[in-house]
Amino acid sequence: MEFILPFIIGILFSASLYLILHRHFFRLILGLILSGLATNLFLFVIGRLTRGGSAIIGQDESVAVEPFADPVPQALLLTAIVIGFGIQSFTIVLIKRVYQSFGTTDLDDMNTTDQIDENH
């Protein structure tokens, strides 16, 4: 498993980037969610994997005994997942709003404020 995981994460990153580069807003959101997932897993794996031990101190001990999982990446992940959820729900509502206002979900139709007039 440990050997395979880096490749899984790579596949997730590739898939997410390809979705983000799409023109469709809906696929962009899918890409964003996937990319968040991939990043979380990336962090988790970089922080080393521990099989069979969680980051919990047993009832009759006062300090954690090896092997126990590194709690720091887990704490980071919890935060990242929750904040990722904030972004996801925001974009999901945003796509609805954009469609209501512009009648399109094609990202190429939404580049006007950022484009400068070359004839100016």
């Binding site: 897993l41 994997l49 969680s54």
Partner: peptide, 22 residues
Amino acid sequence: LLYILFGAPDVAATQLLIETLT
């Protein structure tokens, strides 16, 4: 499920919740 396998039950719980909400 991956999180559960590698000793991160809290993360797994959060992930399940968030996924459902999304």
